[in-house]
Amino acid sequence: MNAIEVHNLSHQYNGRTVYQDLTFTVPQGSICGLLGKNGQGKTTLVNILMGFLKPAAGSCLVLGENSHSLPPDVRRRVGLLHEGHQAYEFMTIAQTERFFRGFYPDWNADIFFSLVKKMGLSHRHRVGNMSCGQRSQVVLGVIMAQNPDLLILDDYSMGLDAGYRRLFLDVLHDFAAMEGKTIFVTSHIVQDLEQLVDTIFFLDQGRITRTGLKEFLTSFKKYVFFSNTGTVPLEDEVIKGFERRRDRFTVYSYQDPDTVTEQLTRQGVEVRDLHRADMTLEDGFIGLMGKY
């Protein structure tokens, strides 16, 4: 069964086409990361999935229900982290717990308080007086205490330092380990997703590509070589992306080293000492999507 199903989704924003015939599924129990450069419509997609935007065409099913008319029972099963760790700033920690408790029959107060306890703040501390990191813990506590079946996290890493991001990842790992739980996450810190997701969606110019994390990190390759010529590689079927720092070139490709060398030579690029280098997900993301 799929936790999320998107069929032929099209959407325009201010006359600009954001998506055209976007189709993808997120299977139940998977941990999916949505990657794309700024402005490619990641948050718009989350907004459509959560019913905050009505798409121009196509259908979006979340836990089997139409996303722009999700019944309360389905919303109860979806933990949603809004961009910027949205929380009611006029509430204290205790009031936040009391407020949300009333909506969720499976509410687990112990989980909520164990997460906020790490900050060492009084339960009477107002959310509005917290740092972004502290607020993120309260929001995470709220979501985890709901015991949702599907987690949708819109840029959870925004404004968080390394410690809070790691804390988030720890909790998400524990959540993902439970049976049948699905996570759909976007983040601008790509290297964090490498530690979490099993499936990646690349969103680029209205198109979406799905790949397994391991499969991507194995099939997509990073090559480094040196060259003194002014000729730079051109992106084509073999060379998917390149970076240059003085005489050190990095190219990205799905092909083996011989094919890459041959293609670079054909392009008139002098290739010296081409070898495969370790590639992180962030390298792969830049290699495939470009820097801007």
Binding site: L80, H82, Q86
Partner: peptide, 18 residues
């Protein structure tokens, strides 16, 4: 104002309530 500023109304709109 506390709800619509910084789009906090989304928190309420996602609650399991009609």
């Amino acid at each position: 104002v506390p709800e619509i500023s910084r789009r906090r109304m989304r928190i309420s709109l996602h609650l399991p309530l009609h």
